[in-house]
């Protein structure tokens, strides 16, 4: 068991029901996110992934149970601003989260809201833009950027608040392969540098990059495990209308034809390694 100080977000039997709805969007979610951990969340459409993201960022207050961020209860109004600073949320459509007509001004928006002195705002803008590789585009208007660049800009806008954790709600679903790769590289760099990352995605090959994967269905947390363990559960994934990673699916096809492969083949690398071993 990790000690309490190593936990960044604690979800204690969290329930959430949207006002006016009969069904709980989240039911009895018990989980935790450790410091510097990279977690991905998968699940069918409508399984409660976005709700979970908003609950973790303290934007929605639980209907039952509680959420602690860095030890602070999200339901307490006096800790709201600090929770906002500690947990950044990036949403699916970058167009709707960029607030300024110039790249650097957009990144500056967060630090300006904190009332930091101009020199500090400037430094944070520099750092955040460098972290996502957009330093050369600082004076461009956001609507002239590509999808991948816009989403990296949205991430920079959150990073400028120096959060402990960044939660991303399907940040790549509107992007082309190149844009997706750019965003994913940024996330991997972030995770390496000690920022906690929670990535909601329906690209299984992306989800497999994480340390742990959460599987949601109908508001319940069905699975909380390492990628290798989850992506071997093909029956379960298929029943939910999901897939495994491409390599996992290939292993499944082979198994159906009578070649059960050893467990734990999740990535292209795993697959190539295995085939080299048996075919050479």
């Amino acid at each position: 068991m990790p000690g309490p100080s190593s936990l960044l977000i604690e979800l204690e039997s969290v329930y959430y029901t949207y006002p006016g709805s009969k069904f709980a969007a989240l039911q009895d979610i018990c989980a935790h996110v450790g410091r510097a951990e990279f977690i991905s969340v998968i699940g069918p459409n409508g399984s409660g992934k976005s709700t979970l993201a908003r609950v973790m960022a303290g934007l929605l207050l639980t209907s039952g149970g509680r959420v602690l961020v860095n030890g602070l209860d999200t339901s307490r109004p006096e800790s709201r601003q600090e929770i906002r600073r500690n947990v950044g949320l990036v949403m699916q459509n970058p167009d709707n989260q960029l607030v300024a007509a110039v790249v650097e001004e957009d990144v500056a928006f967060g630090p300006e809201n904190l009332g930091l002195p101009s020199a500090e705002v400037f430094r944070r803008v520099e750092e955040a833009l460098a972290a996502v590789g957009l330093s050369d585009m600082r004076s461009r208007p956001p609507h002239m950027l590509s999808g991948g660049e816009k989403q990296r800009l949205a991430i920079a806008g959150v990073l400028a608040l120096k959060p402990l954790c960044v939660v991303l709600d399907e940040p790549t679903s509107m992007l082309d392969p190149l844009g997706r790769q750019e965003v994913l590289q940024v996330l991997e760099r972030l995770a390496e540098s000690g920022t906690t990352v929670v990535l909601i995605t329906h690209h299984m090959d992306e989800a497999a990059c994480a340390d742990r994967v959460w599987l949601l269905d109908k508001g319940c947390l069905l699975f909380d495990a390492e990628p290798a363990a989850l992506f071997g559960q093909l029956k379960l994934l298929h029943e939910l209308g999901l897939t495994s990673t491409s390599a996992g699916e290939l292993a499944y096809h082979l198994a159906e034809q009578g070649f059960a492969l050893p467990a734990g083949i999740v990535t292209m690398e795993d697959m190539v390694k295995f085939l080299c071993r048996v075919l050479k």
């Binding site: 949403m91 709707n96 809201n113």
Partner: peptide, 23 residues
């Protein structure tokens, strides 16, 4: 869009009436 934008501003610590600094 407006709804999502409001959320995005809230996430980035925007508060109506609070003193802001400038880049």
């Amino acid at each position: 869009r407006a709804e999502e934008l409001a959320l995005a501003m809230e996430i980035r610590c925007y508060q109506v009436g609070a003193a802001r600094s400038r880049l």
